[in-house]
Amino acid sequence: MEPPGNDVVAFESAEKIILRWDSTASEDAREKMIFAGDRYEIDRYLQAVDEIQRSMEFATLSDDQNKANSAIQIAMARLEDEFRNILIAHTTPMEAESLTDSSPLPEEDYEDDSPLTKDLEHQESNSSCSYRPTNSIREIDLMPSDAIYDLRCIAERMILAGYLRECIQVYGSVRKSAVDSSFRKLGIEKLSIGDIQRLEWEILETKIRRWIRAAKVCVRILFASEKKLCEQIFEGLGIATDDACFMETIKGPAIQLFNFAEAISISRRSPEKLFKILDLHDALSDLLVDIEIVFDSKSSESIRVQAVEILSRLAEAARGILSEFENAVLREPSKVPVPGGTIHPLTRVKVFE
């Protein structure tokens, strides 16, 4: 049965628009981006894609199905390029003033000598970007609303056509580069657990101070803002698509971040490490609620579990050091009294839950 005449005309008109923007067949199409042009042309192309997708549902003849499949493949390749281009065009490194946590830090943490910290000393602690607070979380708007609208329009059509995986991969690759850039600004290095454990303790002390500051920014601002962007673009498009894109973007960086604390928690114990281990424990304990908020989905459960396990190992390491120190003191008590009979300056009270 032949489709109604109006449907044939609509399909042919839509197909013509799709083919005109086929970058494999046209030099002009390769040099221009649809979404960099006027709104009329953008809407016209999206409507053409919608018409092709609608035609696929009702095509009964083999030739009609083949033509529709060919057109939709060309359209999806084009939309993937447009999606990537919009992401790249609106992905800029976070400003230093955005990458600062407003929560109080121990006085010694301000001794961090990373480039970002030095830059922040001369700036206001509040971001100029708009954000909404969620407890201590600050979700910065990473892209303008018009770009988000265009990305959502493209994502909706790619997912409907069965190109979810391609959409997630493109999104994750571009946004992960942005996260990596912020990591470099925060002084977070790509070090394996073995690399960290081989560093001299004096070097590690500085890195621990930097990590405490950076971890707060990463969880409360960077990761939270990336999650918000995923929700703005993908929420409601498929099953947990926004969460899949979020994890595609930040799973690697999150593991990289927490691997540092994990390396410290399982390193060789010695008395001089006690205070910094306690600092790490305190910082991670304070972040735990925020981690549970940002990584609240089933697919991000491994991140939550890793944080809880690291916290437990840090507490265990601190208790072990205290126990070993106590035994050493009992075996060889000091014969020199502390001046004034006060508490020894190395004494520190810490209660672990």
Score class of each variant (00 low, 15 high):
E108A: 03
E108W: 02
D109C: 15
Y110V: 00
Y110K: 12
P115S: 01
L116Q: 04
D119E: 11
D119V: 09
L120G: 04
E121W: 07
H122G: 05
N126A: 13
S127H: 01
Y131E: 10
Y131A: 08
Y131V: 00
P133I: 09
P133A: 15
P133S: 14
T134A: 12
N135Q: 10
R138L: 15
I140S: 13
D141G: 00
L142H: 07
M143A: 00
D146T: 08
D146G: 01
I148T: 02
Y149S: 14
D150R: 04
L151K: 07
L151P: 03
L151C: 02
R152M: 07
R152D: 05
I154K: 00
A155F: 14
E156I: 05
R157M: 05
R157P: 13
M158L: 14
I159Q: 04
L160A: 06
Y163R: 11
Y163L: 09
L164T: 05
E166A: 01
Q169S: 14
V170A: 06
Y171Q: 06
G172D: 01
S173G: 13
S173H: 02
K176A: 10
S177L: 14
V179N: 07
V179K: 04
G187Y: 15
I188C: 07
K190W: 06
Q197E: 01
R198H: 10
L199S: 15
E200L: 12
W201R: 06
I203F: 00
I203L: 13
L204W: 06
E205F: 14
T206D: 08
K207Q: 12
I212V: 05
R213C: 01
K216N: 11
V217K: 00
C218H: 03
V219M: 06
V219H: 09
V219F: 12
R220E: 06
S225A: 02
E226Q: 08
K227Q: 09
I233H: 04
F234M: 08
G236T: 04
G236R: 06
I239Y: 07
A240M: 13
T241N: 10
T241G: 08
